[in-house]
Amino acid sequence: MAKVVDRKPLTWAEHTYLPQIVGGLKITLTNLFRKKVTLQYPEERPVIPDGYRGIPTLVKDPNGREKCVSCQLCEFVCPPKAIRITPGAIPEENTERAHIEKAPQEFEINMLRCIYCGFCQEVCPEEAIFLQDTFSLSGYSREELVFQKQKLYEIGGTLPDKHFKWDKKRSAAHAGNAH
């Protein structure tokens, strides 16, 4: 059923358009003298809040050792399949790290695929992968944006750690059985 909407005729004041113009100018003028919110990106950079989900990176423990043990859980959980890991063994001769036994040979994240969901960080049992504050990526080719292990560690750096799980394992192995 058609419904007729009554439109009120304009008043005299409205016919002059002046109140509207004044109102508009008021908004413009107040904003003109307010503190500016625009950032002069890229010269100025925003402060990235804690917990921000930038690109995923690999981190080392405070002793400078790689934490990732190539369990491939992040590869499994990653919804767009951006992660690709080639697992590898740490040889027994490497006495410093042999107790960890396993580390990635290759670790690839395709940043063009990544959707910054943070699942990898959430699933990682070793706290080795973190979405940190890098948010803008650009490159000249697709290959350039597939980050390899070395690059991921470079961006990732070192984060504080409270577990030192494998260190504990190593000292236990050195100490032998407690009883």
Partner: peptide, 9 residues
Amino acid sequence: FRFKMRVWF
């Protein structure tokens, strides 16, 4: 097969 691939893949 050791450390080659996780079985769920």
